[in-house]
């Protein structure tokens, strides 16, 4: 099907794009999630402000011990390591698993985070990596929001009505992190049914264990994660299941089993059984 009519706006800067946002105006980043919703006419915005011409959003650089990915960097560039600074292997690995190459060639990391689909990869993977999202307002003011907390629920984020994501900052230490990422899907490239993610960097005291595709915001299992850090041991499937059941009281058994399995396999990629 074809989208309902919309007008296209071409902002001259990221801040100008944020200033254009209103009730009927949405951002078009890569359009790989919004596009299907437009074509199905589930989304019928009056205007779309396109970001693809804004080169400053495609920058990748390193400052203050952080790798800064412009919001407009595509998944394919991350997959290919097409960057002036080395990217953490976990980042490249996760990028390769996103949808299909043709989608990765257009879809962007900022667009995926702003869309905040619970089953998408970046919301969960970047939470495990301790990333921060840089939000830019129409007035040019910036603020940073840590990833647990940026996503509030399905399609709900901390973005204000006139804010866009300008960049994602990842601790450079994540290059040396031990990591595990496991995604369960019915078909390669489909939305995930469950995601397990863990990133460990003992030198900086970082251990983040995250369950994704819960139907809501990524779930940081901090109690279990702290236990893994202090013991260096895999908590085992039973402990994973009970922690998930306690954190997601409304979830059905199948969901809990899928999430426990994804977490179990992700942890097993870091800690030998």
């Amino acid at each position: 099907m074809k989208p309902a009519a919309f007008d296209h706006l071409s902002p001259e800067s990221p801040a100008a794009a944020a200033a254009m946002l209103s009730e009927g105006t949405r951002i078009l980043a890569g359009g790989q999630s919004l596009g299907p919703m437009l074509n199905l006419r589930l989304a019928r915005p009056e205007r779309l402000a396109g970001l693809s011409a804004l080169a400053q959003l495609r920058d990748i650089r390193e400052e203050r011990g952080r790798i800064i990915l412009g919001a407009g960097v595509t998944h394919a560039r991350i997959e290919d390591g097409d960057s002036p600074v080395a990217l953490p292997p976990m980042l490249r690995h996760v990028a390769r698993g996103i949808a299909y190459r043709a989608v990765r060639n257009r879809g962007t990391v900022g667009g995926s985070l702003a869309h905040a689909d619970p089953a998408a990869d970046w919301v969960t993977a970047l939470t495990a990596m301790g990333a921060e999202v840089v939000l830019l307002s129409g007035s040019g003011a910036e603020r940073r929001v840590a990833l647990p907390g940026f996503v509030r629920g399905a399609y709900r984020t901390a973005l204000g009505p006139q804010e866009i994501i300008s960049a994602v900052e990842i601790p450079a230490a994540m290059r040396d992190a031990l990591w595990g990422y496991h995604k369960l899907c019915r078909k390669v490239g489909e939305f995930a049914d469950a995601i397990g993610a863990i990133a460990v960097h003992p030198a900086s005291g970082h251990l983040r264990l995250v369950a994704g595709a819960t139907g809501g915001a990524p779930l940081v299992l901090s109690g279990l994660g702290d236990g893994i850090a202090r013991s260096g041991a895999h908590p085992g499937p039973a402990a994973l299941r009970s922690a998930l059941a306690a954190a997601l009281p409304g979830a059905d058994r199948v969901k809990l089993q899928l999430l426990a399995t994804a977490l179990d396999r992700a942890i097993a990629k870091v800690i030998p059984a």
Binding site: P148, P202, A229, G232, I271
Partner: peptide, 17 residues
């Protein structure tokens, strides 16, 4: 391949609302 790590004291993660 999974190599494990020596136990360490984790730094608390920022708590979401």
């Amino acid at each position: 391949p999974p190599a494990g790590f020596a136990p360490f004291e984790p730094v608390a993660a920022p708590q979401p609302e």
